[in-house]
Amino acid sequence: MRSFLVILLALPLFALPAAGGLRSTVPDVLSTRWIWPLTGRPVVLRDFAPPAQPWLAGHRGTDLATTPGAEVHAAGAGTIGYAGPLAGRAVVTVLHSDGLRTTYLPVHPSVRRGQTVSRGEVIGVVQDLPGHCRTACLHWGLLRGRSYLDPLLLLGRGQVRLLPLWPSGP
């Protein structure tokens, strides 16, 4: 019982620094500035699964079920940072005013670099390309700087995983 109380009392000491760190990197999930990039509420085929280290393999976005030719919408207002081919697939990137960047692929763009888009505006259509999904999908990504985040956080649906705060030395 005593060890349980010690753990219970110590828990806030570990949770507060982690939560503070998340606040500075995770977008405001209560915001109504964001929408799904596809019409309706698409099925999530594959969740965000970041690698343990930036150079390792992982899944740096969320795959949403769709059909080739489906319209893709800007999840939030911003400026087109890139719209064109990249590594054999067409990609559209939207730069948002709060330092976030959303990515969409494979998307044949209907926008051009530097163009301002509003939330919900069509930015292209899903290409009919074989990809990493077994069926047609839209890979939706989210970055803040060089850090990948779960795009479902924009809709209040992503998983926040707190890691333990380990001592840094003796």
Rank of each mutant, 00 (worst) to 15 (best):
M1D: 10
A10C: 06
L11P: 08
L11M: 11
A15F: 09
A15W: 12
L22F: 09
D28N: 15
V29K: 04
R33T: 14
I35H: 00
W36R: 05
G40H: 13
G40M: 15
P42C: 12
R46H: 01
A49S: 07
P50H: 03
A52L: 13
P54D: 07
A65G: 06
A70V: 09
A74I: 10
A74M: 04
A74W: 11
A75G: 09
I80T: 03
G81T: 01
G81Y: 00
G81D: 05
V91R: 02
V94P: 02
V94M: 01
S97Y: 09
D98N: 15
G99V: 14
T102R: 12
Y104H: 11
L105R: 10
P106L: 09
S110P: 01
S118V: 15
R119F: 12
G120C: 13
V125M: 00
V126Y: 08
V126K: 13
Q127T: 14
L129G: 04
L129N: 04
G131V: 06
A136P: 15
L138I: 11
H139T: 06
W140K: 02
L143I: 01
R144I: 00
S147N: 11
Y148M: 02
Y148L: 05
L149M: 10
L149D: 01
D150E: 05
G156P: 04
R157L: 15
Q159M: 02
Q159L: 10
S168M: 12
